[in-house]
Amino acid sequence: MIVLLKLIQGIGAGALSISIGLLFVGIGRKITARIHRRYGPPFVQNFIDLFKLLSKKSISHGFTFDLGLIAGFSALLAAVVFLPMGQINIFPHNSSLIMILYLMTMAYLGMAMGVSSSGNPNATVGIARALTLTMGYEVPFAAVIFSVYLFAHTGSLTNIVAAQSGGFMNWNLVKLPFGFVAAEIALQGMLGEAPFDMAIAPAEIASGPMVEMGGKYLGFGMLQHSIGLFLETGIMVDLFLGGGSNVWIFVIKQFELYFLALLVNAIFPRFKIEDGVSFMWKVPLLLGIVQALIVVL
């Protein structure tokens, strides 16, 4: 009985993350358009695009190509159920932050396997860039994780959220401001928004990992991006913005973070890959270390 309940809750969480993620990207396109002084597409445009992609015929380069794309989507879906989202917290005793981060890696490994088995060098260059950038932003994010772990004396997102209950002044955003800024810059890299969008540069490497994807494969890629967006902003909300008293407040807080990322994305050009990494190892890392030192001392 409990298994069935958890299963249904898990499916609900997956559906929520997909729809919120798609909606966010849709609203994001509208906002970016307004920053560019354009009218912009309707905010449901992403749902239409997804529907079209799933109903369009496509080509495949073999079994690993299929499997990789499915893994990229499914592993993120598997990670979503461990994320506390407001009052929805399906597995409250099993929400270790590092576990969720490493489970997300499974999705990226699957995605990387799929696109690079297409045999297109552009795709592999894109993946190589994405992995290099990962090395960049994981380092400051490690400093942030360190600070939060020691500050809250727990590694479970559930308990980190619980420790921040009781108003704005208890949020880690206020308690750990430098860590928040470092994590916010790392988040920009995680989301792959400008200035850290070198992995999917359309003009240089023909949109990188997506080069051979069409139809439902691109649809799966889009789903993966949406869930990834939901997860990454969700982790940030749980870490710094005190979770949410209910799921809608949680989503609004997520959107605030995404909105910030969008503003930066809309006006910045791209870093070169090595410059992006060395930037990550300078400014955010320094902020993260300062925060960690403040927590330790």
């Binding site: 898990g10 997956g14 799933l54 893994a71 499914s74 879906l77 598997a78």
Partner: peptide
Amino acid sequence: SLVVSFIFGFILFYVSAEHKNV
């Protein structure tokens, strides 16, 4: 959790439009 979401992934993959191997 991985097994269940893989099952969903496969279902979604197979109800979508067909693909051909090249």
